[in-house]
Design a protein around this nucleic acid. Sequence first.
DNA 1: AAGCTACCGATGCCTTTAAA
DNA 2: TTTAAAGGCATCGGTAGCTT
Length: 295
Amino acid sequence: MNIKNFDLNLLRVFVAIYRLRNVSRAALAIGLTQPAMSNALKRLREQCADPLFTRAGRAMEPTMLAHRLFEPVEAALGGIEACFARVGGFEPEASDRVFKLLMSDVGEMVVLPKLLGALARMAPGVRIESMRMPLADYPHALRSGEADLAIGNIGVLRTGFYQQHLFDDRYVCIARAEHPCLEKRMTLANYLAWDHVVATSGSTDVLIEEALSAHRKHRRVKLTVTHYHRCAVIASQSDLIASVPANAVLGMPGLTMMELPVRMPAARVRQFWHRRSHTEASHKWMRSVIAGLDL
DNA sequence: AAGCTACCGATGCCTTTAAA
DNA sequence: TTTAAAGGCATCGGTAGCTT
């Protein structure tokens, strides 16, 4: 390898593929397209004179050299990032800043455990405040600084907001394990024949209603609650059925998960921020930490 | 077992950008 | 102005998983 010509961005490429074992997802994680990532991997392979990752089914398995390189490369990259964060006036390891994050309870379950793990290593004094409010209030909260970031599949944040993709989730229909609706296929007619419990903490409710409107249909909503998790608990103990992001119910006992009878694109869960925070050092640092989580 | 579909990495070709 | 490199779009081909 000739270090004079080495592109340090290739180290980010290497770390992302090693963590995710997937070129496409690694590309999304660092803001490239899949072909650009594939080309970067090719250049990295040429520089290292080693394939670094070999395809094994749907995973990219690291070679012996990749395993040996990962720890020192990750540490070096972390050092560089911390150094630039300090130049910008933010020292993560010494900070006691509070970051206010807008997210649903599913977001909390998926993001917060890993985020806290990362903070324990990098910024033990930094604190998180998870906030909940109606989706319509998100733009104002981010614009005014009441919240730092919003995480979710949020359609209301467009003009004046930046966004970065974090992971995809799918929407599913859930019912208690012995529910009579399971005796038949979950057709649209079957789905509409039952009373529903809906949660208002994310955008699922709005998106399902839009999908049903396209068929000129509507659900009978018997109960509205604020959290997806409560929605799932109620569905597991009643004859109400619900439509939720799959991550909301993973591992929950007493529930059956089914495909929705209407076509729903996957939930593209992203982090959103207002342009007022775009160049602020601590904010940039927190965004990079969240984007680097293996979600 | 065969056929179908979805997923995913690789590649060709083009445009853009920056350096010489 | 030329050239090389990087990134994006479109597409190809291999693999896995599901259905018949």
